[in-house]
């Protein structure tokens, strides 16, 4: 079977691409979480900002990924060929699920519990950090999980703008009309996505309350 032969013959290259791919995903996800979770927290008490930011995040989600990568290339500072542009695009895609789940998780805490917290003399900030956030953790983690799986998939397209990663094999395979080369990119990407989904799912269940 020539798929297997290609895998064994190019294992170093595939491993390097996988590492590149993971780097893209981890950096993008870290940035998306650092932006998305605090922003989601800020949205709980600000309905206008909520509508606006969810709309913006939604719009980015509707732009086809190849087009978004293309749009970003000519932009100064964030654009250009390579990893930096890819990370900007991946962050934009990851933002919506994180933002939305953070907001929904925080907003859907049982009102009776929030009232009990208020009645005990907790301040707004104490309620947010000591009651809402811990009770919303599993919902927020579910958003991060969805975003991670999406990002692993979309990151394959980043190869089109020279960001490397497993997409390199896919684009090369398409150009060569060679299934084995396509699969050398597609299979590790799928495995990464499944693994991330499984691990983050475990974490999410561990943090589920009641």
């Amino acid at each position: 079977m020539n798929v297997w032969r290609f895998f064994t013959g190019h294992s170093d290259e595939i491993l390097a691409a996988t590492r590149e791919h993971l780097t893209l995903v981890v950096i993008s996800m870290a940035i998306a979480v650092v932006i998305g979770v605090p922003l989601g927290m800020a949205l709980v008490s600000r309905p206008r900002l909520r509508a606006a930011s969810l709309a913006v995040a939604n719009i980015f989600q509707t732009i086809p990924s190849l087009a978004l990568f293309g749009f970003l290339i000519p932009l100064p500072f964030i654009g250009g060929i390579g990893m930096r542009t890819a990370i900007v695009a991946l962050v934009l895609y990851a933002l919506l699920p994180i933002l939305r789940n953070t907001y929904v998780g925080l907003a859907s805490v049982d009102p009776a519990i929030l009232e009990a917290a208020e009645a005990m003399g907790m301040t707004e900030l104490q309620i947010l950090f000591q009651v809402r956030l811990p009770l919303a953790t599993s919902v927020i983690l579910a958003g991060i999980r969805t975003a991670t799986v999406i990002t692993i998939g979309i990151a394959t397209i980043a190869a089109a703008i020279g960001a490397g990663g497993l997409g390199t094999f896919i684009f090369r395979g398409v150009a060569m009309v060679n299934d084995a080369v396509i699969l050398a990119g597609a299979i590790p990407a799928a495995l990464l996505a499944l693994l991330a989904d499984f691990l983050l799912g475990l974490l999410e269940r561990r943090r589920r309350v009641a």
């Binding site: 009776a112 003399g121 301040t123 009651v131 811990p134």
Partner: peptide
């Protein structure tokens, strides 16, 4: 001050009031 007031008043409601986490 509402916060001070509430910390001086105990409040018991039906079982939902305990923090599940």
């Amino acid at each position: 001050d509402s916060i001070r007031l509430r910390r001086r008043i105990g409040y018991v409601i039906q079982e939902v009031g305990l923090f599940p986490h």
